[in-house]
């Protein structure tokens, strides 16, 4: 059973990864090069020193990395996490997938972006890289916690006979707390990029991750759910004797 969930997670991840790799190729790469060419005070990639690799390598490796990024998120969220949390995720069928995708987006990107928003090349935070990475990790964990609490609140309210709208409102409490807490943290940034370009860049970063999660959820829903009650059938080439015995 677990294997079939992981298999579906990997399939959804492959589709999501290909979609995101394509997005990096046709939108990300050209946009980042364009922002870099806008003549701010820095030189080259990363804004702190000359790049160690050529632009062609960066383009190609970034596309490959985008594919693996989607595969990783698919395997973790829709393979492992979905197997364990499926009974607890609010909604039915397809809705469950989109709820998990929303939680994934909030945890992996949304929560960290509350304190460390996507910055275009040439703009840097005042934090040193280790602190920034640690903060990013802490915010991912905070996002996961807020999403788990939101799901828990929803389930508890529903089992007590509360209607869906009120249960949804209750589930928004932990997320609101997360947003409110993040407002207390303000990290200065240095560097300049034209405001319109910075806005466009931020929109691309948000759209890219949202699109990736939507593709993951949609493909996963399209693949269907392996039924617990059904023994492995001929559709799956998962012929292991262990799962026949239950």
């Amino acid at each position: 059973m677990f294997r079939r969930y992981v298999e579906r997670g990997l399939l959804a991840g492959s589709a999501g990864g290909l979609a995101f790799g394509l997005f990096v190729a046709v939108v990300g790469n050209p946009l980042i090069h364009a922002v870099e060419g806008m003549g701010h005070g820095h030189h080259g990639h990363g804004g702190h020193e000359a790049a160690a690799v050529s632009a062609a390598t960066t383009n190609l490796v970034s596309i490959g990395g985008g594919i693996l990024w989607g595969l990783l998120l698919g395997a973790i969220a829709f393979g492992v996490v979905y197997y364990f949390l499926e009974p607890a995720i609010p909604g039915e069928g397809t809705t469950k997938r989109y709820v998990l995708a929303a939680a994934g987006f909030v945890s992996v990107s949304g929560a960290p972006w509350l304190v460390l928003p996507p910055l275009p090349p040439g703009v840097e935070t005042a934090l040193d890289i280790r602190t920034a990475m640690a903060l990013y990790g802490v915010m991912v964990l905070a996002g996961v916690l807020a999403c788990l609490l939101a799901g828990y609140a929803y389930d508890r309210l529903r089992t007590r006979g509360v209607g869906v709208p009120l249960a949804v409102a209750g589930s928004l409490v932990p997320l609101t707390v997360l947003v409110a807490a993040s407002l207390l943290v303000s990290i200065p940034v240095a560097g300049e990029v034209p405001a319109a370009m910075a806005t466009a860049y931020r929109g691309v970063a948000i759209f890219g991750q949202a699109m990736l999660w939507i593709v993951l959820a949609s493909v996963h829903a399209w693949l269907g759910t392996p039924d617990i009650e059904t023994p492995p059938d001929s559709l799956d080439h998962d012929a292991d004797p262990a799962s026949l015995s239950d």
Binding site: G28, V53, S62, G65, G66, L116, L119, T125, V204, A205
Partner: peptide, 29 residues
């Protein structure tokens, strides 16, 4: 996978993934 993610800080890999890190909004520098 954790090890691979740590290796991403190595300059060659880090710079190669520059566009991806910006497109994905994972920017810590």
């Amino acid at each position: 996978i954790t090890f691979a993610l740590l290796v991403f800080q190595e300059p060659l890999v880090h710079d190669s993934l520059h566009n991806l890190r910006h497109t994905g909004g994972i920017v810590c520098h």
